[in-house]
Design a protein around this nucleic acid. Sequence first.
RNA 1: GGCGCCGUACCCAAGUGGCUAAGGGAGCAGUCUGCAAAACUGCGAUGCGGCGGUUCGAACCCGCCCGGCGCCU
Length: 335
Amino acid sequence: MDSLCKPLIVVVGPTAVGKSHMAIPLAQALRTDILTADSRQVYRGMDIGMDKPPVEQRGGVPHRLIDLVEPDQPFNVGEYRRLALAEMARLHQEGRVPLMVGGTGLYVRAIVRGLWDGPPADWEYRHRLMDLARAEGAEALYRQLAHVDPELAARLHPRDEIKMIRGLEAYYVTGRRLSDLHREHGFAETPFSTLLIGLTRDRHELYRRIDARVDEQLANGLVEETRRLLTQGYDRHLSSMKGLGYRQIAGYLDGDYPYEEAVRLLKRDTRHFAKRQLTWFRKEPGIVWIEMHERESAEAVVVRLMVLVQRFLADPTNCSSAASAHQSAALMAGA
RNA sequence: GGCGCCGUACCCAAGUGGCUAAGGGAGCAGUCUGCAAAACUGCGAUGCGGCGGUUCGAACCCGCCCGGCGCCU
């Protein structure tokens, strides 16, 4: 079993571009599940803010890799990858092509190009480093890192605590330099035969959609959801609560600023996020881009997606198993 | 038509004769291998409504013109 017999279809794009909307008919046609690649939808009870499509809008398509942990439980790429690989193995076993959909670039990359097989987070050690940074400033971390891994230190900004801590942690746990370990891995794995589709649209149009979606989230009860989470004891410094929506609304609920300001900040921060996603995906190799327009119907975009998918499945170098041929036929009939 | 106030970047705005025209907002560009919706980094005026003048030197003073606002007729 080499990667050539493990096809994978991935749909990426910035938030609010319309990924879910496009993915559901595609999943239906492929008779497969949607594997969400979203670092935020893994938290249970965080629905409105994380834009999980409500069950009644999922068209009967099972959504995997969401609602995995409580908001105060740690989660990370490694965990995601383990669970995602298990889901994909299952689907391949059943002769189906997994359809991954999401906006977390790192998670997608860890699936498509693999992940350095390093140690998981050592939180005890991290907290020690965080305390050090708080007491003596980030420069203290930088000095340590420059000592054990000068190459990594040279590449990081002296204020970038998170990445400096990871570098120190890797050295602490493995005794080797993270810069060496990364170089050895190089994101060079090819575990799957992948079709990577990127959805994009005009920036102004995207920003308009973001503004509109934030208004929708608020109308759907984002404030109440945030209040509920805070009441349940999930406080603002949790990684999950620092996600878009909860962070800004919690600020309002705590009296840091008025409601209107929270809304303004949420819209702005979501625009910034979408921009960063585009920056990430822009340099990710192998993405086939589909530019969406307001004037074009969702159905028309789905047809364009289907054409790419059909061509991919029909290519015998990707996978010529009977199952996928069957899927391909179903797709043709549906399109 | 007369008088007064104002005109500095996409927006707000400091500067009222002498270092390279503050600052904020918005925006743009980027980094990323186990917290990634996080975290972190970089970037706007050879120019102050326009044209002349005064001065060694003008966003700043003077004149005319253009535009905006207010009051008067």
